[in-house]
Design a binder for these strands. Structure first.
Ligand SMILES: [Zn+2]
Length: 330
DNA sequence: AATGCCGGGGA
DNA sequence: TCCCCGGCATT
């Protein structure tokens, strides 16, 4: 342990990036864990900008710790996302039918290239994880994740083969509640949806069908659309390799509907209190009159969110200055 | 509570 | 011009 690098390295600029990425994993590999974490504050101490240095210090600390207790911090966004989905899928299907599987997910490979801004060039392993925090592959990282039911399982499916198509309401929707009988709708094959409710195996041909089915039969609810974020299976928020892990996410489907995020265990009270009748349809803009004074705050994550505070150094300058991000433009 | 970023301020 | 942050709108 005695990795020595002087304050310069910490000074933000191209060189630092390297030093950090190289030194840390290395240090960790050694005998960092012996409570030396503190030691990591070192040199840092005398920096010019005091205010900043404190921050830096803190950040550094964070980084260190995170790389310690997360041995293989490896696992890229994509994978994480998938894990969740997969988990959800698996759980869901397990709960009932042995019917099909086949994930409808479609993680839009890499972000629509907009790295420009000569800033830091991540370029690391493969399409997904840019920059790979702790040693991309090879040595000094014995234990490999090999998650329970991981993305790997269907990595193969997600080949950049078909660029854009497939993935529409049907797919998006069924992800949330029922299973479609897969296979590209190409081959004159009708897509079916199966209700995965406890002991129900009803099969309908339309998403709307089971949707209604679920609502009426299982939930005792029947009314308009209600949007819900992905499925949140009770026990799936498990493995999240805490620490720094950002995710590149793909655009969420235009309109997603589902039958209320109830847990697979029966019950059906449903407060009936309020219905989001007006699902803000993203179809057209009727009253184009007022050029909405609202600033929609561009969708999509910016450096801050993507890299996280602990990696502030990787943000684009604009973001660091708290200005409009210039790397992930809208 | 977290993000995104305008506006303003100090070298 | 480079750098940073208060503070507010948005999520
Ligand atoms: Zn940015």
């Amino acid at each position: 342990m005695t990795f020595t690098f002087q304050s310069e390295d910490l000074k933000r600029d191209s060189s630092k990036k390297m030093s950090l990425q190289h030194l840390f994993p290395l240090a960790v590999g050694e005998d960092m864990k012996t409570a030396d974490t503190k030691k990591a504050s070192w040199v840092l101490d005398h920096e010019k900008e005091n205010t900043r240095s404190i921050c830096l210090l803190e950040q550094k600390r964070k980084v260190v710790s995170s790389s310690i207790d997360v041995p293989p911090a490896r696992k890229s966004s994509e994978e994480l996302d998938m894990d969740k989905v997969t988990a959800a899928m698996v759980l869901t299907s397990l709960s009932t039918s042995p019917l099909v599987r086949s994930p409808p997910v479609r993680p839009n490979e890499g972000l629509s290239g907009s790295w420009k801004e000569g800033g830091c060039v991540p370029s690391s392993t493969g399409s997904s994880g840019y920059w790979s925090w702790g040693a991309p592959s090879d040595q000094s990282n014995p234990s490999t994740p090999s998650p329970p039911l991981s993305a790997d399982s269907f990595k193969p499916f997600r080949s950049p083969a078909q660029p854009d198509d497939g993935f529409d309401e049907a797919e998006a929707g069924n992800l949330l509640f029922d299973e479609p009988i897969p296979r590209k709708r190409k081959n004159s094959m009708k897509v079916m949806f199966k209700c995965l409710w406890k002991n129900c195996g009803k099969v309908l041909s339309t998403a709307a069908g089971i949707q209604k089915h679920i609502r009426t039969i299982h939930l005792g609810v029947f009314n308009g659309v209600l949007a819900t974020p992905p499925v949140t299976i009770p026990g799936s928020a498990k493995f999240t390799p805490n620490g720094s892990s950002f995710s590149i996410s793909w655009q969420s489907p235009p309109v997603t509907f589902t039958g209320i995020p109830v847990s697979p265990t029966h019950h059906h009270p449903v407060g009936t209190g309020e219905q989001r009748q007006h699902a803000h349809t993203v179809l057209s803009s009727p009253p184009r009159g007022t050029v909405s004074l609202r600033k929609p705050r561009g969708e999509g994550k910016k450096c801050r969110k993507v890299y996280g505070m602990e990696n502030r150094d990787m943000w684009c300058t604009a973001c660091r200055w708290k200005k409009a991000c210039q790397r992930f433009i809208d």
